[in-house]
C-alpha cells in the first residue's frame, strides 16, 4: 500500500503521525550508497561527481533508482566543509571516499576566522546546492536529504584532531570559539542547501561520540553545538536528523537533549531498547553495514524485517556503507522493509 509518497511518509514520521510502514533511507554524506556496482552500471562515477553538480545529481538519482532507498542524498563525502575552511582534501577514487589529507591548523588558537558569506561561494558548496536543486526538480515525491559534517567532526577536520581533542580540556574558550564559528558556517551552508531544494538535513558527527569525548565533554560540546546547529536549521522549518556513531553508553542520558527530529544510531545500539527507554524519541537505523558488505541477501532481509517489527521509525544503514557492498544485499534490505 504505497498510497503516500516517500517524502510524505518521511515527514509523517518526523511529525509523529501514523504511517503504513517505515521509510527506508540512506541519507548520503557519511552514509551514502554510491556503491561501485551502481556507478559501474551507469557511468556516473566518483570522484568526478564530487566536483560537478549535474553528475552529483545524476549519481544521487542512480542510487535512488537502483537501491530502492527512498530519498536522494547529497553530497557523497564529509569533506565539503573542511575544504572551504582550509584543509587539504584527497578526493579519493571510484571505490575510496574523499578524506582529509592535512588539517589546516595545528590548534584552535591558529584558526583563521573567514567571512562566512565568502566561504559559501568557495569549494564545492555551490555544486552541492545546485545538485540539490536538480534533484528537487526531478521528482517532487522524493525527499532530498542534504548532508552536513557535524560541528565536532568538522572542527577536528580543520584542526589537528589530537590537538583539537586536548584543546577541549586545555583551551575551552578557544574550543568554544572555533565551534561557534564552525556552526555558524554550517547553518549558513545548510540554509543554502534548503533554498536550493533540500527538504531534510542530516548531520553526521563521527568524532562527537561518547566513546571519544566521555559524557562531560559530550554534553559541554557535542550537545551544545549540535543543538545550536539544529536550531539554526530549524528556523527554516526543515527537519534535521542527527547520526551518532559508536555505542551510546555513557551519553545515552543526553539523547533526549538533542533537539533534532530524529536520532540515527550505529549498529552497536539496541534501538528497540532505546525506544522503550525513550518513547518520544524518533529513532533511525541501524542495519549493520558489515552485514551489507559481507552478509547474504537472506540474512540482510531477516535483519531488515526485525527492525520493522521493532517499530524503528526510520530504517537505514547503521554507518557508512562500504563501496563494495553488493547491490543484491542493498535491494534485499530496502525490499524487505517495503514488504514489511
Amino acid at each position: 500500500m504505497d498510497s503516500i509518497s516517500p517524502k510524505e511518509r518521511l515527514f509523517r514520521v518526523f511529525d509523529k503521525k501514523s504511517i503504513d510502514r517505515p521509510p527506508v533511507v540512506c541519507p548520503g554524506g557519511m552514509m551514502n550508497a554510491a556503491i561501485v556496482d551502481v556507478m559501474n552500471s551507469t557511468g556516473h562515477t566518483l570522484p568526478e561527481a564530487h566536483h560537478d553538480d549535474r553528475l552529483m545529481a545524476a549519481l544521487a538519482e542512480d542510487v535512488y533508482t537502483h537501491t530502492g532507498f527512498e530519498n536522494f542524498g547529497i553530497p557523497f563525502c564529509m569533506t565539503v566543509e573542511a575544504e572551504v575552511l582550509g584543509s587539504e582534501i584527497n578526493f579519493g577514487t571510484l571505490n575510496c571516499e574523499p578524506k582529509i589529507q592535512t588539517e589546516r591548523f595545528a590548534d584552535a588558537s591558529q584558526v583563521e576566522y573567514k567571512d562566512i558569506n565568502q566561504m559559501l561561494k568557495q569549494g564545492r558548496i555551490s555544486n552541492v546546492v545546485q545538485a540539490g536543486w536538480h534533484l528537487s526538480h526531478k521528482n517532487a515525491d522524493v525527499p532530498v536529504i542534504g548532508n552536513l559534517t557535524g560541528p565536532i567532526s568538522t572542527a577536528a577536520s580543520v584542526i589537528d584532531p589530537m590537538n583539537f581533542l586536548k584543546g577541549l580540556r586545555k583551551d575551552r574558550e578557544g574550543s568554544h570559539k572555533v565551534l561557534d564559528y564552525v556552526v555558524d558556517f554550517l547553518i549558513a551552508y545548510a540554509q543554502l542547501m534548503i533554498e536550493g531544494g533540500a527538504t531534510v538535513i542530516s548531520v553526521g558527527d563521527p568524532t562527537a561520540t561518547g566513546e571519544i569525548l566521555g559524557p562531560k565533554m559530550f554534553k559541554e560540546y557535542a550537545v551544545t553545538y549540535l543543538n545550536k546547529l539544529v536550531e539554526g536549521i530549524g528556523k527554516t522549518g526543515t527537519p534535521v536528523i542527527v547520526h551518532i556513531c559508536g555505542d551510546l553508553g555513557s551519553v545515552k542520558q543526553y539523547i533526549l537533549e538533542i533537539r533534532s527530529q530524529a536520532i540515527s544510531t550505529d549498529a552497536k545500539v539496541n534501538l528497540r531498547e532505546l525506544k522503550e527507554e525513550y518513547p518520544s524519541l524518533v529513532t533511525m537505523g541501524n542495519l549493520s553495514t558489515y552485514m551489507l558488505e559481507f552478509g547474504k541477501p537472506e540474512q540482510v532481509s531477516v535483519q531488515a524485517k526485525r527492525l520493522v517489527e521493532q517499530k524503528i521509525d526510520i530504517i537505514a544503514p547503521a554507518c557508512g556503507l562500504s563501496t563494495s557492498s553488493s547491490l543484491d544485499n542493498i535491494k534485499a534490505f530496502t525490499q524487505s522493509v517495503k514488504e514489511g
Binding site: M162, L165, K166, L168, R169, K170, E211, I212, L213, G214, M217, G249, S250
Partner: peptide, 14 residues
C-alpha cells in the same frame, strides 16, 4: 573504567 576519555588520556600522555 570510563573515568577518563580520549582528551584526558592525550593530556596524560603529553
Amino acid at each position: 573504567e570510563e573515568e577518563y576519555f580520549i582528551p584526558e588520556l592525550l593530556m596524560c600522555s603529553d
